[in-house]
Design a protein around this nucleic acid. Structure first.
Length: 211
DNA sequence: TTCCCGCAGG
DNA sequence: CCTGCTGGAA
């Protein structure tokens, strides 16, 4: 089992159409902060609620009352942190980039700049770059480590090591990298959970957890 | 390692 | 009722 084969097998099994729905780079950024340890159904609700309250766009969000943001994102959990982080990001976009998220995302050092923002770690930064700015960088989620390890493809939990490995194996193609990430998330939810559900798993042939 | 946190799904 | 969620920071 290698990464190419895994990609191929997952592609036959799962659908990634309409993955990470967002109407703008800014919505990708908002979603990326909200979806940490949170299912997308709740993120979707929160984004709709932010829009309903008129505090979704950077300018409004930056000056919104804390309580307003907290109530809007409450359903995502960790709502105090997330409200603060959202407002911090919005304020940064307003102050440093004239309210235009692309001002940040188009910079060569966008990743480093994102990582300086409170609440933005490697995974969140890369998901913003890949889905919001179309950059060819793989999002090496915790799920990926689990799947690659169990299948014996790569034995490490180090973020950068996993990302480098995938970049080398798949190539710097945004479509392929985002698709693989989405497929691995779907697979982790369906079969490769913390307690494995190997029954009907498309990777059973070649996985050490398989029958 | 632990805390942050509510909620959808089974 | 119990799991797990498209993580990050202290």
């Amino acid at each position: 089992m290698d990464l190419r084969r895994l990609h191929s097998l997952l592609r036959k099994r799962y659908e990634t159409e309409g993955w990470w729905p967002a109407s703008s780079p800014w919505e990708v950024m908002v979603g990326a902060l909200l979806t940490q340890q949170t299912s997308w159904t709740n993120v979707d609700k929160a984004i709709a609620e932010l829009g309903r309250r008129g505090v979704l766009e950077p300018a409004a969000m930056a000056s919104a009352p804390t309580k307003e943001l907290e109530e809007a994102v409450r359903c995502c959990g960790f709502f105090r942190q997330k409200a603060e982080r959202l407002r911090g990001m919005a304020a940064h976009i307003m102050e440093e980039h004239g309210g235009d998220p692309d001002g940040l995302l188009s910079r060569p050092d966008a990743r480093e700049r994102l990582l300086e923002r409170p609440g933005v770690g490697p995974e969140t930064a890369d998901s913003i770059l890949a889905f919001g700015a179309g950059r060819p960088c793989f999002v090496a989620a915790a799920y990926c480590s689990r799947i690659l390890s169990r299948t014996g493809i790569l034995e490490t939990s180090d973020y950068c090591s996993i990302q480098d490995f995938v970049h080398n194996e798949i190539g710097r193609d945004t479509g392929a990298l985002t698709e693989l990430y989405a497929l691995m998330v779907e697979h982790a939810k369906r079969h490769c959970r913390s307690s494995p559900r190997c029954d009907g798993c498309p990777l059973n042939d070649g996985c050490r957890f398989g029958p």
